[in-house]
């Protein structure tokens, strides 16, 4: 299951939790937990996507619509090797 998720992330592109949950036959919460678990194991790393800490010094913080609740994940070298190996 985790390998499948890792392979899916390696494909790239945008995907929402619900889609991944449907593809894997689990719930969105489990997908979220697995992504975090993969990150803990060093296969994925969260890639920014959160400017909440930068707003303090930003002159446009009030006119900015703000980022939607989203998380970008990228493969680490380890994740890339693992995904390539699985493929």
């Amino acid at each position: 299951m985790m390998e499948r998720l890792l392979a899916r992330v390696a494909v790239g592109g945008s995907v929402h939790l619900g889609e991944l949950a449907d593809e894997l036959g689990v719930t969105a919460t489990v997908v979220r937990d697995m992504l975090r678990d993969l990150a803990l194991r060093g296969y994925l790393k969260p890639a920014g996507g959160d400017c909440s800490t930068k707003c303090g010094g930003c002159a446009f913080s009030t006119s900015c619509h703000g980022a939607p609740s989203a998380q970008t994940w990228t493969l680490t070298d380890k994740g890339r090797r693992s995904a390539a190996g699985a493929a």
Partner: peptide
Amino acid sequence: GERQSFVMELP
């Protein structure tokens, strides 16, 4: 460049 994955949580 390489492709990156974007996983989004929809409210």
